[in-house]
Design a protein around this nucleic acid. Structure first.
Lengths: 232, 232
DNA sequence: GTCCTTTGGACTAATCTGCGATCCATTATG
DNA sequence: CATAATGGATCGCAGATTAGTCCAAAGGAC
């Protein structure tokens, strides 16, 4: 019987993780802001004091900027673009594991999404795909890319799967952010369009295969960035 | 921005989940007992009172029996065998989703385990496989089956994967428990032996394929049990 | 049977956490 | 400059969690 200590997270740290996730997964984009504290706290089901503790941490990390007064609020800042010269946060072997994991679960999500189309989901996917055509900055790209994959995960209608995909994306955030926007954009546009087409057609097998191939391409691009940091 | 309420679990409920997991995943088998409360509490990093709260719940659910005195303690009871006539806890569509998910991730675990053999892991696997040959009651079978799959998950050395596999097994506990021991035992013996052989040989691709086929068989058997409850 | 050890059961007092509420400080806008 | 919207700070309460203590039952040694 493994006997690791149980981890009892404080309320603020649960909130913190949630907010971090909202930012990292681009549910709020740089420039946007969280709701006013009183409202935000209520939505999260937590007291304002607790929420503020979490915001303080994010502020310290430079992920948000807190301003007061009218038009104040917690403004999400563009994460500092990772410097290509500083070593990555993840070791290559770890990243490799995440990529393998993702390559197994996201195609399943695509398959299930194709089998369970919803008007709402399809609408969001279409928006995310069309938006990519006019995306001009990294932030927009990341946001639409995230939205596309997360919407598919949502449509898959399997809580465990959604959670796994979210967590995986979270963990890979930094490496993904190192890929070159201009290089990745066109291939992503194409891949997303083709995946969406398969889902719209209800062709589950095709959707799955196209997602798999999209992820393989993406993995190659991430790996390329890592070649210079041959540590393990 | 999805705005579900954040869930801040109480300490006792975190402990509760942990203990429930220990039982359901057969890390402690029926008849075995948890350590004395004082020691157990310390191991879990929580006060005795908190631990007892959790134990009370498990006692209420009939999962453990608490006795005092020398040789007392919290004794894990054999879970009431699910009555084949009562409807399953999971709807068929939900179970189907879990089976699909499992079919994607466990083969990956087998592959990675074969690529990362450890003496400790291989030893445990061998024990779990050999034990099956002499397993005579359901409890022993469940325990060794769990141990086999979880050890592979552990060897895969990818925390996300281990967690996903644990959670999936947890969720499928009740349906799995409905399968007929005598029917499942021989095929499981054979499958586990073959998987272990592939892992020992370091043949990752073979290990993966054999795990996939093992899970497919298992899925068929679980599905069979469900045929009489055609609800969705 | 008596005594001792081991273990759960119950209670208390102190501390810590999270919450609600209130009031203050800052900022944009008309 | 008045007002409204927003973050900043503080206080006291209620509940959760803890450490510590003592009690009660069960089994074993003699």
């Amino acid at each position: 019987m493994a006997d690791h200590q149980v981890r009892v997270p404080a309320a603020y740290s649960v909130v913190l993780e949630r907010l971090r996730r909202d930012i990292m997964l681009s549910r709020v984009s740089p420039g946007e802001r969280f709701p006013p504290e009183r409202e935000h706290a209520e939505r999260l089901g937590v007291s304002r004091v607790t929420l503020r503790e979490a915001l303080r941490v994010l502020e310290g990390e430079g992920l948000i900027e807190v301003r007061r007064g009218v038009n104040g609020g917690s403004i999400v800042k563009a994460p500092a673009a990772p410097d290509a010269r500083t070593p990555p946060a993840l070791r290559w072997s770890e990243l490799q594991g995440l990529l393998e994991f993702r390559a197994r679960i996201e195609p399943l999500a695509a398959r299930r999404a194709a089998e369970r189309p919803t008007d709402e989901g399809l609408g969001e996917l279409e928006g995310a795909v069309r938006g990519l055509d006019t995306a001009e900055d990294v932030a927009t790209f990341r946001s639409l890319d995230s939205a596309f994959h997360l919407t598919i995960a949502q449509m898959a209608d399997l809580p465990l799967l959604l959670d796994a995909i979210e967590t995986t994306r979270m963990a890979m955030f930094e490496p993904l952010d190192r890929t070159d926007f201009d290089v990745v954009l066109p291939s992503t546009q194409r891949a997303h369009r083709r995946i969406l087409a398969a889902i719209t057609d209800g062709n589950a097998t095709l959707a799955e295969r196209r997602m798999a191939s999209h992820l393989a391409d993406s993995a190659t691009e991430v790996a390329d960035v890592y070649t210079r940091f041959i540590d393990s």
